[in-house]
Amino acid sequence: MRPTDQVQQWEWIEAYYQNKLPAAERLVFEQELARDADFRETALRLQTADEALRILSLEHTVRKTVRHELAHRQPLRRWRLGRVVVSGMVLIGLGLAYLTFDRVDLQSYRDDVTLTQRYRASGDDLQETDLTPRQRAFYRDFFDAQAFLANGQPEMAIPSLETLSRADSLRPYFRQAVQWHLLNAYLLNNQPDNADATFQLLDQSGEPVYPINRTDRWKVWWQIRWKKLAP
């Protein structure tokens, strides 16, 4: 039986297109559709609107889900970026720790053939040599200082090296070798200001002829600054 109340009639129409009416009532509904053009128009409008709204609500679900899914990826992206930044900071930290705490290996400089061959060729214990006594004394002082440094006695090496560095008759190669060892001795003896001054002297001593490893140069530069900052 078709409801007479307006709202109930709309609900009746809704129940029909949602397949909620029993078979007998569906039959009555369809008879009303066929008989009453206004009723048919109302039913069609409600059904059209319901279908449209269902589609639009699904579209809303689609848009919301895509937005959520894309936004959800942002933290993951940030996390990846964060990992790169942290890795970079760890690498920088490791690099700085290496520069700060790894001492210059002076053994490799003690093995410098260029410096020793002239002295050794002269025969350490021979009197007939092409080296002057003064030159022989220079070499001896320098090798003694190297030995003190190797023994962990920089304070013993410093006076000899300071004396040598003040001599004005040294070849550039030998002068730079003395300055390099002196600044390392100062560093080992916790005298960063003296080390810094010697480092600058070494830098200003003209063309670098004494081979100093680039990493070692960075190490002493950084360690001088580090010791000045954190005495």
């Binding site: 709202v7 609900e11 109302t42 069609l44 409008r45 409600l46 059904q47 609107a49 319901d50 709204l53």
Partner: peptide
């Protein structure tokens, strides 16, 4: 509740009318 239902169906009828005219 009655007023809400009336409002909902009237809105749907209006929407249905717009869509049917468009179609």
């Amino acid at each position: 509740m009655e007023a809400a239902k009336v409002r909902k169906y009237r809105c749907m009828l209006r929407l249905g009318e717009i869509l049917r005219k468009k179609n």
